[in-house]
């Protein structure tokens, strides 16, 4: 089978999974559905010849699932009053469908699937192994040619994790203070 068929199949699973994740009432089922979407993304990366991304996506998806399950399990979020506004949902759905159809000419103008522009990367694929000595071209790009990007990325990760730790630790200290009083 050609790769397009497999990718359309995988993306169909992803669409169904994401709609289920958004519409189902049970929190655990929603989180599991988002996990299915993430693993389908990992499989799609494998079909698109990106084993690096497939490994990273797989592991980070597992980690995100652990965080989400630990944080949200056993909480009653879905009472009857929580059913979303039906009219607003219909209006938003119609508008988004209209946006999808209006954007169709844009996708026709893009380079077709399987034939990328390949201007900057031509240099990388030709010269990277001689210039950096690394067999993994993705590693040579993120850590040598574009290491500045990675520095910014590590900084963003540091800031995000620091924010999460600060928010959660402050709440714990207030709880302890209340108990001692």
């Amino acid at each position: 089978m050609p790769i397009e068929t497999w990718l359309i199949f995988t993306m169909g699973i992803m669409l169904v999974g994401s709609i289920v994740a958004l519409e189902i009432r049970d929190v655990l089922s929603a989180i599991i559905a988002i996990g299915i979407v993430g693993l389908a993304v990992s499989i799609a990366f494998l079909f698109l010849q990106a084993p690096d991304l497939a490994i990273v996506q797989f592991l980070f998806e597992i980690f995100a699932l652990i965080i989400l399950v630990r944080a949200f399990i056993g909480k009653k979020a879905h009472e009857d009053s929580l059913a979303s506004n039906k009219t607003a949902a219909v209006v938003v759905g119609v508008v988004l469908l209209a946006i999808l159809f209006l954007c169709l000419p844009i996708f026709r103008a893009l380079p077709p699937f399987g034939e990328p522009l390949f201007i900057t990367s031509a240099h990388y694929t030709k010269m990277a192994t001689q210039e950096t000595g690394a067999a993994n071209l993705v590693a040579s790009i993120i850590l040598d040619y574009r290491a500045y990007d990675t520095l910014g990325e590590v900084t963003v990760l540091f800031a995000a994790i620091l924010g999460a730790l600060t928010v959660l630790r402050t709440s714990r200290r207030t709880q302890k203070g209340k108990e001692s009083k």
Partner: peptide, 25 residues
């Protein structure tokens, strides 16, 4: 295949998990 988008997406996945952790907190 083009390695450049793969390198960009690799960092994007990591940042996504950091953002998820922050939102959860």
């Amino acid at each position: 295949v083009d390695p450049l988008p793969q390198a960009l997406v690799l960092t994007s996945i990591v940042i996504e998990l950091g953002i998820t952790a922050l939102l959860v907190a």
